[in-house]
């Protein structure tokens, strides 16, 4: 059983939801990332999404965009991101790690080379925001052959027919985009998301995680009531950005925020 499957299964068995946290690798400095990942894991994050900084993150809102720019000031490369996973894995074999980014970063490295390197580093899944399943066969197979899941997103605008098509290719978990907008938007419609997730459950046995627009304990708790996983990204990245001048304080701040989310979710 993969780490992703285990982490979701554990929480689901406990009638709870997995906490998925997102940070940009190298933001605000490369030294902060691995300690911040450990801090998030200790505070109850089951899955860590590590953003691959990209110059043109067209699906991200202002917070994650700024995080990418901070990381790129340090010229953080995909190879560096993979090294961070290697470093993290030396002390944590339990927390699932998912790389999240844009296709061009992977293509520049080469799809097979990336799949090999990701698997060897201890990566469990990959999300590429701008890689639809229609264009993904080659990478999906390359990753699958190394035991790494390619995770797809479903959106409020995804039709049932298309959802079937995507779910037939999905593995690891399904990332449901809760709203129309870039990451970190404010217009979350909890009731609408609940209804859609109920429908999706009839179409797949994979865990359903919900992301975009979950910013605090209140929204995390509301979504945790029906989702298998709750993804928090922009709100964490913004907090990390606010501490860019004192990076030593970041792991503790990240942990405090994750603990707040975890507590709210466990009360759901």
């Amino acid at each position: 059983m993969s780490r992703l499957t285990e982490r979701f299964a554990e929480r689901m068995a406990a009638k709870s939801s997995a906490l998925v946290t997102y940070l940009v690798a190298g933001d605000p400095t490369p030294e902060v990332t691995v300690p911040a990942m450990h801090a998030l894991a200790r505070a109850g994050s089951d899955v860590i999404e590590l953003g691959i900084p990209f110059s043109d993150p067209e699906a991200e809102g202002a917070d994650i965009q700024a995080g990418c720019e901070r990381a790129l000031m340090h010229k953080v490369r995909l190879l560096d991101v993979l090294d961070m996973v290697v470093a993290f894995r030396k002390q944590d074999a339990r927390t699932a790690v998912v790389l999240m980014g844009y296709l061009n970063s992977v293509e520049a490295m080469g799809q097979q080379r990336f799949a090999d390197a990701a698997a060897e580093a201890g990566v469990d899944g990959v999300i590429l925001v701008n890689l639809p399943p229609e264009e993904a066969d080659e990478l999906r197979q390359a990753l699958a052959s190394r035991g790494v899941d390619l995770i797809f997103l479903l959106a409020p605008t995804t039709t049932d027919e298309r959802a079937q098509h995507i779910l037939a290719r999905a593995s690891g978990f399904v990332y449901y985009v809760s709203l129309k907008g870039p990451t970190g938007s404010a217009n979350l419609d909890v009731e609408g998301v609940r209804k859609r997730l109920d429908q999706l459950r009839t179409m797949t046995a994979l865990p359903l995680a919900v992301g975009f627009g979950i910013r605090d304990g209140v929204t995390a708790r509301a979504v945790a009531g029906f989702a298998d996983g709750v993804v928090v990204g922009s709100a964490l990245v913004r907090r990390m950005g606010e501490l860019a001048a004192e990076p030593a304080a970041i792991p503790a701040a990240a942990a405090a925020f994750a603990a707040e989310l975890r507590a709210a979710m466990d009360a759901a």
Partner: peptide, 20 residues
């Protein structure tokens, strides 16, 4: 049909836009 000019073109967007 899917917008390819040989190996170029295609549709590489966030899922939300596919429907539009």
């Amino acid at each position: 049909e899917r917008g390819h000019f040989g190996r170029f073109g295609g549709r590489f967007v966030a899922e939300t836009l596919t429907h539009a």
